[in-house]
Amino acid sequence: MNEEDDKDAPNPRLRRRSLLTGAALGGAVGLLKPAAAQAPSTAEPQPLGDPRGALTVELLVNGENHRLQIDPRTTLLDALREHLGLTGTKRGCDHGQCGACTVHIDGRRVLSCLTLAAAVRGPVTTIEGLAHADGTLHPMQQAFIDCDAFQCGYCTPGQIMSAIACIGEGHAGSDAEIRESMSGNLCRCAAYPNIVAAVLQAKG
């Protein structure tokens, strides 16, 4: 091989370096591609509340019939607050652990944040439905006022709904029994002694 041929011959080291560099860059570009570009989805997104998937639900709330078009995943709590404007029922933990969202369905207390509106069977009573038409408060509402059974008041609607059920279920025989029956309703202000006193007064 003469000197001219040696100049034209490719450098083995250069070829190997170029090959490795090109492979690395190609792999990096592949990783940077969006997932949608690599695997295009044929499914059309269905946003929450899409009318194409809405259900027609009839709810009897505080003696009034309501016909709602709602997403199947709508909870009773959201139906009451967002669709009917009944904001007395409070959103607390949203996990069924604080009791702030307690309402009655057919006379029984339930946690509305864990209850699907589409699954409700029976009349619903919220804190707004307790007082009489002439403005007279329910005995339990009056007892909470008389016994100073609330401070910030956020948990009070759920406490009152549970307290009424506590008496109706026959669990208000003693302070200890009331505390046990009301243990699912948390009060951050710790007004528990006054809440027990209110239940005993309303029972009487």
Rank of each mutant, 00 (worst) to 15 (best):
N2I: 13
E3Q: 03
D5F: 08
D8S: 10
N11I: 03
R13P: 00
L14Y: 07
R15G: 02
R16F: 01
R16K: 08
R17Q: 12
S18P: 00
L19T: 05
T21I: 15
L25M: 15
L25E: 09
G26Y: 01
G27E: 06
A28F: 11
A28Q: 01
A28M: 08
G30L: 15
G30M: 15
K33L: 12
P34W: 13
P34Q: 06
A35N: 07
A35D: 09
A37E: 14
A37Y: 14
Q38G: 11
A43C: 09
Q46M: 04
P47D: 12
L48W: 13
P51V: 13
P51M: 15
A54Q: 09
T56V: 14
E58Q: 06
E58P: 03
L60Q: 14
V61G: 07
N62R: 07
H66S: 12
H66N: 14
R67I: 14
Q69R: 15
I70K: 00
T75D: 04
L76Q: 04
E82Q: 13
H83V: 07
H83Q: 14
H83G: 01
L84D: 02
G85T: 05
L86E: 00
K90Q: 13
R91F: 05
G92S: 08
H95F: 15
G96L: 05
C98M: 09
A100L: 07
C101P: 02
C101I: 04
C101H: 08
V103L: 08
R108D: 03
L111I: 08
S112F: 06
A117Y: 11
A118I: 05
A118Q: 07
V120M: 04
R121Q: 12
P123Y: 00
V124H: 10
V124D: 04
V124G: 11
T125N: 07
T125C: 05
T126C: 10
I127A: 09
E128C: 05
G129N: 10
H132S: 14
H132M: 12
A133N: 03
G135S: 06
T136H: 06
L137C: 08
H138L: 09
P139L: 10
P139M: 03
Q142M: 05
F144Y: 00
D146K: 06
D148A: 12
Q151G: 06
G153R: 01
Y154R: 01
C155S: 02
T156N: 04
T156Y: 07
T156W: 03
P157R: 03
Q159P: 00
I160M: 03
I164H: 03
A165C: 10
C166D: 00
C166P: 01
G168Q: 11
G170K: 10
H171Q: 15
A172V: 05
A172E: 03
D175A: 14
D175H: 04
A176I: 12
E177P: 05
I178P: 00
R179F: 02
R179E: 07
S181V: 03
L186I: 15
C189V: 10
Y192F: 15
N194R: 12
I195L: 14
I195F: 11
V196S: 02
V199W: 00
V199P: 00
Q201S: 06
Q201D: 06
K203R: 15
